[in-house]
Amino acid sequence: MRKGAWVALLGGRFSLLLILLLMGLLFGQADRHFLTVSNAVNVLLQASPLLLAAIGQTIVIISGGLDISVASNVALSSVISASAASAYGPLAGIAAGIGTGAAVGTVNGVLVSHYRIQPVIVTIAMLTFARGLAFELTDGFPITGLPRSYTQLAWGKWFGVPMPILIAGVILLLVVFVMGRTRFGTYLYAIGSNEEAARLVGIRTVPLKAAAYTAAGALAGMAAVIYTAQASSGQPTLANGLELSTIAASVMGGASIGGGTGTPIGTLLGTLIISVLGNGMNIAGVTPYVQQVVLGTAIILAVVWDRLHISLVQAARRKGEPASQ
């Protein structure tokens, strides 16, 4: 095979699958509890809300932005969802959680697209604001007393498949369809690649970019509902550090910071790698402190690899070798 093709192959999803497989074998060697069906289900259960939030992050990154406020948004949505659920029932709780997430996302989106403030700054400000609001609403205590039908979202099964996995799967397929087969998705890729060019060909960039943040917010709200159901309470401290995991999952999955690339399926693989890594380290008895160090290093390596891969592909192209993605 030619060099360009190798580069494309190793930079693509194939290498992610390879990493997953290697990690599975490695952890499986280290501990026999790792490669069991119940542990696999366990990993998927933990990965489901992360996947929802990470897909949202991917959509924003594709549009050329970034959302650092995911974790705080999840915490705020969790608190509001739990209050609504204990007061008005499970359906109101779910709607309130997703609605809060979408509202927070919309504020981010309008500030980024209409008022043209840098995404990093807007979402940092939102990070502080939403976390503060989550604490103010609850005085720092978890909100308990959720109806049983609400916590069924975490523990219920449908044809033997746990609900969180089912929800995450359905949403994943939906986003794959929207990003790959609809005008909205195509336009977002266009905006992320070159906003000015997209505007000049007649794409209404301002509302579309804002919509990307709204979608990401709604997905964060769904993640919040699942986390809340899993914890049986609304937690103002929920999801600390989630922004990093979602960015890592997106970037590992092929979303380039700067916009225009990335796929929900790639993000699924990134999410699985992060979840398997966390689960494997837990089983191997690695302390949470060291896990944080590993995750921090992993994301940097993922971005470094992404940059390296881009420049290798570009170098191969310059030489006239075909290096299809």
Binding site: L244, Y289, Q292, V293, G296, I300, V303
Partner: peptide, 14 residues
């Protein structure tokens, strides 16, 4: 912002 978010987690762990 990515490098320093990575550092945030890394340094917190240390």
């Amino acid at each position: 912002f990515i490098a320093t978010v990575g550092m945030l987690t890394y340094a917190q762990g240390i």
